[in-house]
Design a binder for these strands. Structure first.
Length: 670
RNA sequence: GCGCCCGUAGCUCAGGCGGAUAGAGCACCUGCCUUCUAAGCAGGGGGUCGCAGGUUCGAAUCCUGCCGGGCGUACCA
């Protein structure tokens, strides 16, 4: 609502400036004045115009303000400061519209052009060889939240979680079972308890085993080869491990409300010969070339000279042959393909450019009825029921350490002539989650003196160094359960647990979302486990408080039904409730609440969920201030009471909707 | 070496496509629970926005150069 209103106002200013001064404004920036008294919208474009006209900005602003005419929804226009044009909105109108719209979706479509694109969003992508840790949680929460935002914006989104079931990491755990533990498949199947935790420890053991016995690396190569060939005991063991671990990951992610549509497996990309097709394509178009000499002799290489950027730098030859500037190996000299190569094939498939498809089997049924499918190399009993891929836009949620490789994938598409698809491929990058030195201490990890001085310590699956996702969720559940019990001793335990779960998810998701993507999170238990201050529970609490008001007011004053509030708003302005009664204090809140829409748009455009998270916290803060200042239930003026209730409802609705987009729901009590 | 990212309050971070007095949380200090739940609110102290130039009517924001930190630049992913 506010967004379209601003667009209308902008358009009129642009048109007016053009016809009166024959000047087209390069871009029209809208700001918010520092104080409500100064207005609701501030336009600084007169500074630019004044420069062009060589006249004082304030004079130009005054001229425009008096000549531009009326705007729908605008009460008045004022010149302020050195030359701003400030706009005051019609408060009652605005309030009424916001009230009527607040329970609907505030965003109809973020893309003004109605070209419906199918979006493929890849996230999580945890190697299926160990338990998920906090770093994986950040990836999944960012991806899941972004999917929610896009869907809310009217997009059609398919969420894929790529399973690297034939990679080294799985092979390492297989090596662990075979050579360290001497376990065959039945013995592995008989392992009790959390399998992903078991593998977490085993993986760390294998890594140090390699380190101590460099010869043993040959086991890895052998195992990898056996896994790729298939039809042998080792491959069966690997299959069991990776599938079992994927199951664990999906269980973990579902605990915080994350689900997937499709799990594409790397083994299927190999078995269905996707790579062979992509390889032919790459060779045919000259995107890769065969190295006949030098260090990379016998490899297929992709030139990465002037990656992402514009003009190729001339003196390439100048830069003495450095190892790291010769391009990226796509096919190794032994004929095996690297991860990037497979990823190019996968990316081509996502866009439907491969002319080949997977088979799909149902893999995981969620309690809400949703099914996650897994790719397969052979048809299901009921083939053809589902279809995946064929996207028009692709987002890959992958941490920023892989941006070099992601660039190669995108440049690969470009080299193949798929310019448009390359442009519509986005690496949704984010910084890693590391451990603060204090956190390491708490975990009993010994640090060198040098490490203690560092701002953070990198998580390492290989070293078994990290905070496991399920452990963190358990701790959060336990803590929130205690908090709930201390406040609501009357509730039965199932109810307490249900509420605690909602709060735990909220704390975790908000914690991972409040940092912008390019900020490294130095994980700290104290901050992650906090329910106070800038946290998810704080925002939830504001909504619970608003709901308490509605519940209580109905009990104590039956005349204040939702219907009576509704009809009050309908008649707003016609009689006893003049514009002036919407004082600045209330208006500030209304106006802030109306900005959910623009914050959602901004979050989508910049692919930055933190923007929305921060906004919701600010709105919750503003509501808490209001909550403390005004006693709604004991308000004696019936009109004011209804006004305050309507205002509360708007904020409640906006907060609740915003939280839903972050994957956070609101408990009945807190 | 080259590429990308970061440096803002004691700590953790917003703001950053130039705009009005630089914000929040945590921590610390002082108050507020017979009230719509204190997971809250009010108040307080705390800043040469890494440094130096430049562009501009105006710079935390843009440009250049330094300083300090991180990540990447693998026949790992």
């Amino acid at each position: 609502m506010l967004v379209s209103l601003i667009e209308e106002i902008k358009a009129k200013f642009i048109e007016h400036v053009e016809s009166r001064y024959h000047y087209s404004l390069s871009q029209l920036i809208v700001e918010q004045p520092p104080k409500v008294e100064l207005g609701d919208l501030a336009f600084p474009f007169c500074f630019e115009l004044a420069k062009y006209l060589k006249r004082p900005p304030r004079q130009v602003a005054t001229e425009i303000a008096s000549s531009v005419g009326e705007f729908p929804g605008v009460a008045k226009i004022q010149v302020a400061g050195p030359g701003y044009i400030n706009v005051f909105l019609k408060r009652r109108n605005f309030f009424k519209q916001l009230f009527q719209g607040s329970h609907q979706r505030p965003v109809r479509s973020t893309t003004p052009t109605q070209t419906k694109e199918k979006i493929i969003l890849e996230h999580t992508n945890i190697n299926p060889n160990k338990a998920a840790h906090i770093g994986h949680l950040r990836n999944a929460v960012l991806g899941d939240t972004f999917a929610r935002l896009l869907r809310f914006g009217g997009e059609s989104v398919e969420v894929q979680n790529y399973i690297d079931d034939t990679g080294v990491q799985v092979a390492d755990v297989v090596v662990g079972f075979k050579y360290l533990e001497k376990k065959n498949l039945p013995a592995v199947q008989a392992i009790p308890g959390k399998f992903d935790y078991y593998c977490w420890d085993l993986y760390a053991r294998v890594s140090s085993f390699y380190q101590q016995n460099p010869d043993s690396q040959k086991f890895r190569a052998e195992t990898l080869k056996l896994i790729e060939e298939g039809n042998n005991e080792t491959a069966e063991l690997a299959h069991y491990i990776s599938h079992k671990i994927v199951q664990c990951h999906l269980d973990t992610m579902w605990r915080i409300g994350i689900q997937y549509d499709l799990l594409p497996k790397e083994s299927d990309i190999l078995h269905l010969r996707f790579w062979h097709y992509a390889f032919e394509l790459l060779k045919k178009t000259g995107a890769i070339h065969f190295e006949t000499s030098g260090k990379n002799q016998g490899c297929w290489i992709m030139r990465v000279g002037e990656r992402s950027s514009r003009a190729p730098k001339e003196p390439v030859a100048d830069r003495s042959e450095r190892d790291y500037e010769e391009g990226k190996i796509i096919v190794r000299s032994n004929g095996t393909v690297t991860y990037v190569g497979k990823d190019i094939a996968y990316q081509l498939w996502k866009f439907g450019l491969l002319g080949m498809d997977f088979f799909y089997h149902p893999f995981y049924r969620y309690p809400n009825g949703h099914t996650a499918y897994m790719t397969h190399s052979t048809p299901d009993r009921q083939p053809g029921l589902v279809q995946f891929g064929h996207g028009q836009r692709v987002y890959n949620v992958i941490d920023s350490r892989q941006s070099y490789l992601q660039n190669i994938v995108i440049e690969g598409l470009r080299a193949l002539g798929f310019q448009e698809q390359a442009d519509k491929s986005t690496h949704f990058s984010y910084e890693m989650v590391a451990l603060s030195p204090r956190c390491c201490e708490e975990l009993g990890i010994q640090l060198s003196e040098e490490d203690k001085q560092r701002p953070y310590i990198e998580v390492s699956g290989r070293k078994g160094l990290g905070v496991k996702a399920d452990d963190l969720i358990d701790t959060l559940l336990e803590k929130s359960f205690q908090e709930v019990r201390s406040r609501h001793i009357d509730l039965d335990e199932t109810e307490m647990k249900r509420i605690a779960a909602t709060i735990a998810v909220s704390a975790l998701r908000y914690f991972l979302l409040k940092y912008t993507r390019n900020s490294v999170i130095a994980f700290d238990f104290k901050e992650a486990l906090s329910f106070e201050g800038e946290t998810g529970p704080y925002v939830q609490y504001a909504v619970v408080r608003a709901n308490n008001i509605f519940r209580k007011v109905q009990e104590e004053d039956p005349s204040c039904s939702p219907d009576s509030v509704q009809s009050f708003v309908q008649t707003l302005g016609t009689e006893a409730f003049p514009d002036e009664r919407i004082e600045d204090e209330f208006w500030k809140l209304i106006y802030l609440a109306s900005q959910l829409e623009s914050n959602v748009c901004l979050s989508i455009q910049t692919a930055e969920p933190a923007t929305l998270a921060k906004y919701l916290f600010g709105l919750a803060q503003a509501f808490n201030l209001f909550y403390h200042k005004h006693r709604i239930i004991s308000e004696v003026d019936p009109l004011k009471k209804r006004f305050l209730l309507a205002l509360t409802r708007i904020i409640r609705d906006q907060l609740e909707q915003g939280l839903n987009l972050l994957g956070i729901s609101v408990p009945a009590k807190m």
